[in-house]
Simulated scan of single mutants.
Amino acid sequence: MSDLVELAIEAHGGLERFSRFSSLTARLHQGGVLWGLKGKPTVLEDCHVRVDLTRERVSHWPFAPTRNHSVFTPDRVTIETPDGAVVEELDEPRTSFAGYEMETPWSDAQVAYFSGYTMWTYLTSPFLLKQPGVTSEEIEPWQENGEEWRRLRVVFPDTIATHSAVQTYYFDGSGLLVRHDYEVDIQGSNPAARYLIDPVQVQGITLPSKLRIYPRQPDNTPAPEPLIVSVDLSDYRFE
């Protein structure tokens, strides 16, 4: 049986090709109930993102209704004007979510932290499985929609900001990532299932053009509603 990590990485374009690039930008249209619950229904509804592929660093812009942008790293988040003046900052951002639940509002800097680590995790998968300290093991397959998907149980080190330390990745028969499960630790560890839809080829790398995230039920199936987050991605560009 072929190694699932290697199969997945090759199916998405190969590590050698992915390693040629230093950043990835995209346009996002985001929806779902999460943003309203956090008191930020439109702040990143239509925006752009730049993901650094060599380290965990991400920027979103604009933070509507302003032209401000974010600078996210695991240890510090800032909201800055187009001229680079800091208008909001948050050091050790993860600690600011202590005691938060699904309905707890967020500041712009907290939105930037959540959006930063999620898009870095999402847009570098499955290549991030080769990051130092990331470990994985194949577990029993999963049946869904008449298909059998192979699964990886992945454990992330503390040095990587992400949803939860333990996550599960699902791959179809060709090795493409089709589902991704985790607990959102910064909002009460609620379980979620993310679906990757309508893959596209971008400079030889396969990326999703749509993401849909639903609550994950105790039997490991997704709840049909509410739609927690939707993301439509376009205008991808590697540099």
Results as ranks from 00 to 15, higher is better:
E137I: 08
W149E: 03
D181T: 00
D232S: 07
V87H: 03
F97R: 07
G31E: 06
S2F: 10
E80T: 06
E6M: 14
L177M: 13
E137A: 09
S115F: 12
F238A: 06
R50H: 03
S96R: 07
Y122D: 10
T121W: 07
P41W: 15
E239H: 13
T66S: 11
H163M: 11
C47P: 01
E16W: 12
P126D: 08
I205A: 14
G13F: 10
Q143Y: 14
A192H: 04
W120G: 02
L233A: 09
P82N: 08
D83V: 12
D185A: 12
D198E: 03
L176Q: 11
A193P: 01
T81D: 00
V43Q: 11
R150A: 12
E144K: 14
M119I: 08
G175C: 14
F156P: 02
Q131F: 15
S234I: 06
E144P: 12
L123S: 08
S136A: 15
V229E: 01
K40C: 04
P224N: 07
V166E: 10
E239P: 07
R55K: 12
I228A: 13
Y182L: 11
K40I: 03
L24P: 07
R57Q: 04
I186S: 02
Y113E: 00
I160S: 13
F127Y: 15
Q187H: 03
R50L: 05
Q131S: 15
T121L: 08
L177F: 14
N145V: 07
Y195D: 03
P226L: 05
V154N: 11
P74V: 02
L227V: 05
P208A: 08
A26M: 02
Q217I: 01
T221W: 12
S209E: 05
R27S: 13
E140Y: 09
G204C: 09
S96V: 12
L90C: 01
L123Q: 09
A165L: 01
G39N: 10
G133D: 09
R67S: 09
R50T: 04
T95V: 10
L152W: 14
R76V: 00
T25K: 10
D91A: 02
V231W: 08
T104H: 07
E147D: 09
H60S: 07
R151C: 15
M102F: 06
Q187M: 06
H69A: 07
T168G: 06
Y236W: 03
I160C: 13
V154P: 12
P132H: 13
Y236E: 00
K130E: 09
L177T: 10
S174K: 15
E144L: 15
V229N: 02
P224Q: 05
V184Y: 02
R57P: 00
A8Y: 15
Q30N: 03
E88Y: 01
S96D: 04
R216H: 13
P215T: 06
Q201W: 05
G31D: 10
S107Y: 02
G14W: 15
A112W: 00
V77D: 00
S174C: 12
P191K: 07
S174M: 13
D91E: 00
C47N: 06
E183G: 13
R179G: 14
L207C: 14
N220R: 15
V184K: 01
S19C: 04
S115G: 05
A26V: 04
K210M: 09
